[in-house]
Simulated assay, not measured.
Amino acid sequence: MSTILVTGGTGTLGVPLVERLRALGHEVRVLSRRSPTHPVDLREGTGLDAAMAGAEVVVHCASAPRGGDDVAAGHLIRAARRSGTVTNVVYVSIVGVDVVPLGYYRTKLAVERLLEGSGLGFTILRTTQFHDLLARVVGAAAKLPVVPLPSGVRVQPIAVEEVADRLAELAVPTPAGRVPDLGGPEVRTLAQWGRVYLAATGGRRRVVPLPLAGKAYAGFRRGGNLAPGRAVGRITFEEFLARRDRTGA
């Protein structure tokens, strides 16, 4: 079994990933600023050398949509090189980061490029959007008198548990490079997903497809965020919503 570091280990993806890795018998170090055992600030790079000591694998799940992922990744990569023991840095990215010119996507692509040029062994997995994100987007719009959603934008959501399963498989000392993308089981427009959400939550508002402008919007309309040939996920958005309703999560 390996010693594995997980950044973002207390987040939406990190929690189920850590559970899976520990169930497999790995020693898992969850990095965070408030960790009693491995206090690390990725933005500043503090605490990384101590946390990295003796580790073989790093799974990098931490992300900040407001910016700074490239800075954090640079600190992580340099610490991994200094450790002399890390043989595989596993990074979860997003389908479409190289074709949809969204600021957050560009930063994710920059992190991929940093890993590719780092001299370290690496594994990059791109996934489609999580069910959780789709639910937040549609749920926020559903609070308005009508439900405005970008027209013509298709989404292929995937269950975070299935992403965690795949990352647990990839979190081994041998790097795999860029691996096949991971996509959810269904592709529908945001307007269609909005109606699914309303039906599941008892909402009665009208969904209004809203045309937008800009290069990022055009990239989404072209389907740059989709992986229809890799629709390997099995848990549907309806199943996610039903489970959320049962558990209150």
Rank of each mutant, 00 (worst) to 15 (best):
Y105L: 09
A64Q: 14
V187Q: 10
G194K: 03
A110K: 12
H75E: 08
A51Y: 03
V86R: 00
A51W: 01
R106Q: 14
S151Q: 14
T3G: 08
V100I: 13
A141M: 08
P173M: 01
L198Y: 11
A64E: 13
R188A: 12
A142H: 10
A73M: 15
G223N: 08
A216S: 13
V86M: 04
A218L: 09
P157A: 11
S118L: 09
Y217W: 10
R106A: 12
W193K: 03
I235H: 10
L17C: 04
S151M: 08
K108H: 08
A242N: 02
L13E: 03
R204F: 15
T201G: 06
V138M: 08
G219A: 10
D245Y: 01
Q156W: 02
T107S: 14
W193F: 06
G219W: 10
N225H: 11
P101C: 09
P16A: 06
D98G: 11
T236S: 15
E186P: 00
A199N: 13
R20F: 06
T7S: 13
L5H: 07
I4K: 05
Y197D: 01
A50E: 15
S2E: 14
E162P: 03
P148Y: 11
A110Y: 09
R34A: 15
V90E: 05
A159M: 05
H26F: 04
V90K: 01
A191E: 10
P145N: 06
R20P: 03
P150G: 09
H131R: 00
V147L: 08
K143W: 15
H75M: 07
R113P: 02
E169H: 10
V15N: 05
I235Q: 10
P101S: 12
D41G: 02
Q129A: 11
G45V: 03
G14N: 09
Y217D: 03
D49H: 12
P180R: 04
V89N: 06
T37F: 14
Y217C: 03
A79P: 03
V59D: 07
R78K: 12
L190Y: 00
G223T: 07
V160F: 01
R22W: 11
V137H: 06
T247G: 00
V59I: 12
R246A: 13
H131K: 00
G84D: 05
E44S: 15
G223I: 07
L102V: 10
L42T: 02
G184C: 05
R113E: 15
G67Q: 13
